Amino acid sequence: MKSKDIILRFAFFPQMGIGLLGNSFLICLFMFSFLSGHRMRPVDTIITQLALVNCLVLLSKGIPETMTALGLMNFLDETGCKIIFYLHKVARDLSLSMTCLLSGFQAITISPSNSNWAELKARAPRYLMPSSLFFWTFHLLFCSYIPWGIKGPKYTRNITEIQLTGYCSYQILAGFQVSIFATIISFPDAIFLGLMVSASGYMMFLLYRHHQQVQQVHLTCLSPRASPETRATNTILLLVSTFVSSYAFNCILTAYMSFIKSPPWLMHSSAFLASCFPAISPYVLISSDSQVTRYLYALCGRKPHIFTLVTHKYSLPRTTS
């Protein structure tokens, strides 16, 4: 195994550890807060599900890659390979859907009360659980095609049509079949990605307009800190740009590898990029969501600092027309 392949494989271990730590923290915090009887926000259900699927993405890709880097080749049979690839695909698609749902819900929440979203704004929290259930059901069924193309690690028949990963192998389609198949499986991702970018752009527009309206108030403030609108906009930009950039580069590499037999380092690079968002997103949410601090203080039996209360009040500012 080449040195660059080993480096890329070992890079999955710290990425997986850091990502699991952040996502597990969010899951445990919200679960303990819920069991303790604290009032939860509707958005917390989305964040919890996003953290859960992020853990599945990191585990389903990070563990096999790390074990292969340690020299444990062919540790999965064909059934294990099918399960690992299926779970990874479902979790990855759900991560996109939950991020899209989070962006859409926040866009509706901060929309002006007299806008076209006013009626939906009051009913949006009731639609979160049915929407989440729909996404889970849809992706579990839609990704059922994954096991058909996955082979065991020692599959050698028709080797020119098989792509090896180090611990499993999968069949490569040829000719016109590739374009048709790629278009079908990418269509839902394109819709969710477009909705997420549109919702985020709408939020940025609302927050910018609100910031312009209250700019004089912020100019008279003696605090050197950035305004709440600016911090919220930066959070949205960082979260969405992280997802879009990692997803786009991964899609480009995946499309390239669908047409040719790729070297191992390229496959490892694609998998590493796909796992960047699940590893980074929990820390973006933790650093930008002051409610996390309130939950921690509540669980510890302490009152949050007055600055935390003020920050929470303006963390997602409402706009007025």
Rank of each mutant, 00 (worst) to 15 (best):
158 N>P: 01
224 P>R: 04
61 K>W: 11
271 A>W: 02
24 S>W: 04
312 H>L: 07
18 I>D: 07
261 K>V: 11
207 L>G: 01
89 K>N: 09
177 Q>P: 07
189 D>H: 11
241 S>L: 08
186 S>L: 13
18 I>N: 11
176 F>T: 12
221 C>Y: 02
204 M>H: 01
293 T>Q: 14
196 M>P: 00
302 R>M: 12
210 H>Q: 13
292 V>P: 01
258 S>G: 14
264 P>Y: 10
191 I>M: 01
225 R>Q: 06
242 T>W: 14
233 T>P: 03
187 F>H: 04
284 V>L: 14
89 K>G: 04
293 T>N: 12
46 I>G: 00
12 F>G: 07
161 E>M: 02
143 C>H: 09
177 Q>N: 15
292 V>F: 02
290 S>W: 15
311 T>I: 10
309 L>F: 09
187 F>S: 12
255 A>T: 08
243 F>I: 03
241 S>F: 05
18 I>V: 14
245 S>C: 06
40 M>V: 00
168 C>Y: 04
52 L>K: 05
117 W>Y: 05
159 I>M: 03
9 R>M: 08
300 C>M: 14
297 Y>I: 00
30 F>L: 06
16 M>A: 09
276 C>Y: 11
262 S>W: 10
154 K>I: 03
228 P>S: 00
192 F>P: 07
142 F>K: 05
107 A>N: 04
168 C>I: 03
259 F>G: 13
271 A>T: 05
102 L>K: 02
318 R>S: 14
123 R>M: 06
137 T>I: 10
92 R>P: 06
204 M>C: 01
10 F>D: 06
215 Q>W: 05
275 S>I: 03
216 Q>S: 13
255 A>H: 12
196 M>H: 00
265 W>E: 15
39 R>W: 01
88 H>Q: 14
281 S>Y: 11
309 L>K: 14
100 C>F: 00
40 M>N: 01
223 S>K: 08
17 G>L: 15
199 A>W: 03
160 T>C: 04
44 D>E: 15
184 I>E: 01
140 L>K: 09
11 A>Y: 06
156 T>I: 02
198 S>R: 04
154 K>G: 08
65 E>L: 04
182 A>K: 12
189 D>L: 09
282 P>R: 06
271 A>V: 02
72 L>E: 08
229 E>F: 00
132 S>R: 12
31 M>C: 12
